[in-house]
């Protein structure tokens, strides 16, 4: 059986917000180390991988590996019934077809209980090779959100170029072109810092609508990492205290 007690429903809500527009159904793979989810969007262009560590829960018990097939729209509805600071317990029996969610109010005696149907999901799991990336850019997640949102007003694609100068995001639209250069900052310790580690110059083009989707994870984590090598998928990584959310996005290539 699974019993996982989270300090705050808000963490789950934010996670769901960050994946629900990419993926409709997904298996939450539970084992003694924690909960993992890996799912591709319908068009097989983007993949999201989530990990929640067992140690990050107030209490965590999972006797044997079990997949929980979840419709994310349904889970979003059930989570809307929780206050952000409710203590939240997820429970499922072995071979169960329901997930039980209990919300305990922090400062009152309210206890709410919901049961959600689970489903069988055949998912295509991809083996992601360990990759040495040629460039790693670390920046405030809010800045990343802003730049992809701004440029998505102009065009469909963005070229991300990493050089010693900094990282440049450029988009060409029918009515307007735009480019944003973010220079490396001197103080690595500053939470607003932009750091660039680079073996070679990298230039890749991506669909902005996916990046705008990924950037919703900014609510989970103040920093984001972009990992890039020429001609391989981009990795956008948000590491928060209790785990991570990582997105992979296939590059576009010129005709």
């Amino acid at each position: 059986m699974l019993e996982a007690k989270l300090a705050e429903a808000g963490t789950l809500k934010k996670l769901l917000d960050a994946i629900k527009e990419l993926v409709t159904d997904a298996n939450f793979e539970c084992n003694e180390e924690g909960i993992n989810l890996q799912a591709m969007d319908n068009s097989h262009v983007a993949l999201v991988a989530v990990h929640l560590e067992a140690a990050g829960f107030k209490r965590y018990r999972c006797d044997r590996p079990m997949p929980l097939g979840v419709n994310l729209t349904s889970l979003t509805k059930v989570l809307k019934c929780a206050k952000d600071d409710d203590i939240t317990t997820l429970k499922a029996a072995d071979e169960a077809d329901v997930l039980n969610l209990v919300y305990e109010a922090k400062n009152s005696d309210r206890i709410a209980e919901y049961d959600m149907k689970l489903m069988d999901i055949d998912s295509d799991t991809l083996g992601i090779p360990d990759t040495e990336y040629d460039a790693r850019v670390t920046m405030p997640s809010a800045e990343f959100t802003r730049v992809v949102r701004d440029l998505s007003q102009l065009g469909e694609s963005v070229r991300i170029e990493v050089s010693k100068e900094g990282v440049r995001f450029a988009s060409e639209g029918e009515a307007a072109n735009g480019s944003v250069l973010m220079k490396q900052t001197d103080d690595d310790e500053d939470t607003q810092a932009i750091t660039i580690e680079m073996n070679q110059h990298v230039s890749l083009t991506f669909s902005l609508k996916y990046l705008v989707n990924f950037s919703k994870s900014a609510s989970l984590c103040p920093r984001v990492q972009l990992m890039m090598s020429n001609d391989v998928p981009l990795l956008v990584a948000y590491d928060f205290g209790q785990g991570y959310i990582r997105y992979y996005l296939a590059p576009k290539i010129g005709d």
């Binding site: 262009v45 083996g127 090779p129 296939a250 576009k252 290539i253």
Partner: peptide, 14 residues
């Protein structure tokens, strides 16, 4: 102008 690659072109299916 651009062709969109798929992830399955890069990562192997398990």
């Amino acid at each position: 102008k651009f062709k969109q690659n798929k992830l399955t072109d890069f990562f192997r299916q398990k």
